[in-house]
Structure formats: structure tokens, C-alpha cells
């Protein structure tokens, strides 16, 4: 019981520390929120044209641009998680953590938790701005959207953990995170509906972003609910779990990581 309490205490210490770091560098949050919002503003007119062409007579474009940018920028949590781990090496605090009573799983949970919360906040803000500023109409319930947000963040966090374990430098994780976001997001239909890409549909199905986007749009256009999206929830959970599994199998506290560019 005491060791459980100590463990929870250390995890909460990591959470607090990560949030303090985020608060000390608020620019990061503004960037990850402002960029998708700006992209929504830029892409909405084009999305409007595409949706009208597809027969959505009442669409205003936000039905494509908002969920598109949500899934595209959800991937930024991979690089944020990478930074949370790799900067410890840059600041020489990693050795301190290793010489502390903290167990590896406590460090992982302690670092992933706040990034997960940050990711949820990011997605929520983009949805909020989409609904209020871009007049996005959602046929289904916001609860389904919120649950999808939770599973999407989980999936990208799992991929992030795998990248943390597999990459050696912060540059690697940054490039993979950013390029991954663009490629997977693009293939998944973040910029334009997936059925306009010939032959890319099968490739897109390997990406959690595709499934998340499809589910978001099923809620927006068709009013699908929680039960209708159970398969997507499970799939996103599976993507995240697979990422965490790879991460946990390959993660070594003693690995040398380069935290500077």
C-alpha cells in the first residue's frame, strides 16, 4: 500500500513538473492551437467547394476543414512527448531521474499523462473554435466527438511513445512527427476527402488518422453515435496500445539520447 502511495506520489510529481514546464513555455500551446485554427480558416473555402461538389448542399466547409485539421495536428503530440523525454537528456536531468527512486513506468506515465491532457485541450479548442467561429454544425452528439478525441489522443500518444523509444535524437522525432503528420494526415483526407485520392484508400486505412477522421465526419454528417463508432474506438485504442507496446519493449532508461538540435 505504501509503495503504491509512493508510486502515485512520484507520478503526480512528474505531472506537476510537466505542467510547470508547459506553463513556463506557453508559446508551445499557442502554436499547437493557433496553427490548426489558421489552417481551418485557410482551408475552409476550398473544403466548401469540394463538399458542395460532393453533394453536401448545406455544408459550409468547416465539416471538412475542422476535423481534418484536428486529426492532422493531433500528431503534434508525438513531438511534444519526444521533447518531454529528450530534453531531460539535454538538461542532464535524465541521470538525476535514473538515480532517483522513480521507476521507469512511473516516468513514462508521468510524462505521457500531461501530454495526453495537452492533446485533449488542443483538440477541444480547435473543435470549440470550429463550432463558434466557423459555424460548424454537428448532427451527432458532442460526447461522441469528445470520446473520439480521447481515443485519437491515445493513439497518437502511443505512436509518440514508440518514436521516443526508437529515435535517438530530438531531430529524428521532430522530423518523423512533422512529416508523419503531413503524410498520414494527407493520406487520411485531412486536406480533402479521401475518396478523391485514387488508390490511396487502402494505404490510408493503416493510419489512425483516417479512422478518426471518418468517424468524426460520420458524427458531423450522419449523426452517428457512440455505438456506431465502437469499431473505430477499438481500432484507435489498438493503434495506441501497439505503439505503447513497441515503446515499452524498446524503451531503455540507459539509452543515450541527443536532446539538442
Amino acid at each position: 500500500m505504501r509503495s503504491l502511495n509512493n508510486s502515485l506520489g512520484r507520478i503526480s510529481a512528474f505531472w506537476l513538473n510537466e505542467f510547470r514546464r508547459m506553463r513556463a513555455d506557453p508559446g508551445q500551446f499557442f502554436v499547437i492551437v493557433m496553427l490548426p485554427v489558421l489552417m481551418v480558416a485557410a482551408l475552409t473555402p476550398m473544403a466548401l467547394a469540394v463538399l458542395r461538389m460532393k453533394g453536401h448542399a448545406n455544408a459550409n466547409g468547416a465539416e471538412q476543414s475542422v476535423p481534418g485539421m484536428v486529426v492532422l495536428f493531433s500528431f503534434t503530440s508525438t513531438t511534444i512527448l519526444g521533447g518531454a523525454f529528450f530534453r531531460e537528456h539535454l538538461w542532464n536531468t535524465w541521470e538525476r531521474l535514473r538515480a532517483s527512486p522513480a521507476l521507469p513506468f512511473e516516468i513514462i506515465v508521468g510524462k505521457c499523462g500531461p501530454v495526453y491532457v495537452l492533446s485533449l485541450c488542443q483538440l477541444s479548442v480547435v473543435w470549440f473554435v470550429g463550432i463558434t467561429a466557423f459555424h460548424l454544425k454537428i448532427s451527432g452528439s458532442l460526447i461522441t466527438i469528445a470520446i473520439l478525441n480521447g481515443f485519437l489522443s491515445w493513439a497518437t500518444l502511443g505512436i509518440g511513445m514508440a518514436l521516443v523509444a526508437l529515435c535517438r535524437t530530438i531531430d529524428q522525432i521532430g522530423i518523423i512527427g512533422n512529416m508523419g503528420s503531413m503524410v498520414l494526415g494527407g493520406l487520411s483526407g485531412a486536406f480533402m476527402p479521401i475518396d478523391l485520392h485514387s488508390g490511396m484508400g487502402m494505404v490510408a486505412r493503416c493510419s489512425p488518422l483516417f479512422w478518426a477522421l471518418s468517424a468524426y465526419q460520420s458524427v458531423i454528417f450522419d449523426g452517428k453515435g457512440i455505438l456506431d463508432n465502437t469499431f473505430t474506438f477499438l481500432l484507435l485504442f489498438g493503434f495506441g496500445a501497439a505503439g505503447f507496446l513497441i515503446g515499452l519493449m524498446r524503451f531503455r532508461m540507459s539509452d543515450t539520447k541527443i536532446g539538442s538540435t
Binding site: N6, G9, R10, S12, A13, L16, N17, R20, R21, A24, D25, W91, N92, T93, W94, E95, R96, L97, A99, S100, P101, A102
Partner: peptide, 28 residues
């Protein structure tokens, strides 16, 4: 055990108090 390794290991963007508070929490 208490360790002060050769290279200074601190969070530069946090205050001194926040650094001490964090590591104090880690050691319960």
C-alpha cells in the same frame, strides 16, 4: 542516495524552488 553528477542537471526554464520541489517530491 543523493547524487550530484559532474554535469549540472536542472530544469533551466523552471525556478530554483520548482526544481527543488520536484526532486523533493520524487524522494517522497
Amino acid at each position: 542516495l543523493g547524487l550530484a553528477s559532474q554535469d549540472v542537471g536542472l530544469y533551466p526554464i523552471l525556478t530554483g524552488w520548482q526544481n527543488l520541489d520536484f526532486f523533493g517530491r520524487l524522494v517522497a
